[in-house]
């Protein structure tokens, strides 16, 4: 069949996937610690129709070849790990990381996952857990008689005990860092998993060696920019339309061929 039909079809497929990426960004506009995705487009491999330098006759060679394109595809959705806005909540267990880094979270199977969502809670044993109930690593237990809780910028957690029992240091929150944050695999529930592409995790003290600092009483908002996504959506819709026009044109030509010969 006509090559242009299939080439235009790749355009439709890719634009459709891009719209899914945009919709996902827009629906997560209020998700704490969410990082927006960007669809990365690539032109597909080319077909060599005429080799550059091939002889056109005995004396002359063709100066340029002819590479026929075969369409487009989305090769990746890239997470853009830019800083989201800080929302001040005044809640002692709401933590945000300013700069690079992730909180380390224990999974049910013993492996670790990483998150930027610092809306921590206490479970029934006084342990610091995520909103989904998973433990923060290193584990942190808040005593029952703790009055006020302070988390320093370097992650040190101090509690002022009730009834004048003094101040105790409960531990230090550590922050994980990756060479290539965009290579982390999003698992949903605001969590990321380490992959080969992300590089191995490095755990460090907040604020040291380029690792972000911990900010208490604030949450990091989603970094989705609604205006930008709207513009992307308009562009995607129009790109979809022109590709369907190309299919309609190829279809019209084939119909004409069938009707007239």
């Amino acid at each position: 069949m006509d090559a242009s039909l299939w080439v235009a079809k790749t355009g439709l497929t890719a634009q459709q996937s891009r719209l899914t990426v945009i919709s996902n960004n827009l629906s997560n506009v209020n998700t704490v610690g969410f990082k927006k995705d960007r669809a990365v487009f690539e032109d597909l491999l080319y077909q060599n129709v005429r080799q550059p330098g091939a002889s056109t006759d005995a004396q002359t060679i063709s100066p340029t070849g002819l590479m026929m394109g075969t369409g487009t595809r989305i090769i990746a959705t890239e997470k853009i790990h830019s800083q989201g806005n800080m929302i001040s909540t005044e809640n002692a267990l709401d933590l945000a990381i300013t700069g690079r880094g992730f909180f380390q979270i224990q999974q049910a199977d013993g492996t670790f996952s990483y998150t930027r969502d610092g809306s921590f809670k206490l479970n029934d044993q006084g342990q610091v857990v995520t909103a989904n109930g998973q433990l923060l690593v290193p584990a942190l237990t808040i005593p029952v008689n703790a009055g006020s809780l302070t988390v320093g910028r370097d992650g040190t957690v101090d509690a002022e005990l009730e009834a004048g029992a003094g101040k105790v240091t409960l531990g230090q929150i550590q922050v994980a860092r990756f060479v290539n944050e965009a290579g982390l695999q999003p698992m949903g529930r605001n969590l990321y998993r380490e992959t080969t592409a992300s590089g191995t995790v490095e755990i460090g003290i907040p604020g040291l060696a380029g690792i972000g600092e911990v900010m208490q009483g604030a949450l990091e908002a989603s970094n989705v920019n609604v205006v930008e996504e709207m513009v992307n959506m308009i562009e995607t819709q129009r790109a979809y339309e022109v590709n369907s026009k190309a299919i309609a044109a190829a279809d019209g030509m084939l119909r004409f061929l069938n009707n007239n010969l």
Partner: peptide, 24 residues
Amino acid sequence: IEIARAQSANQLANVSTVAFKQSY
């Protein structure tokens, strides 16, 4: 003109490819 038509379709398909250049 078959190749010319396929090339036009390819350019329309790559309307969102970062820094795609026309050549044909």
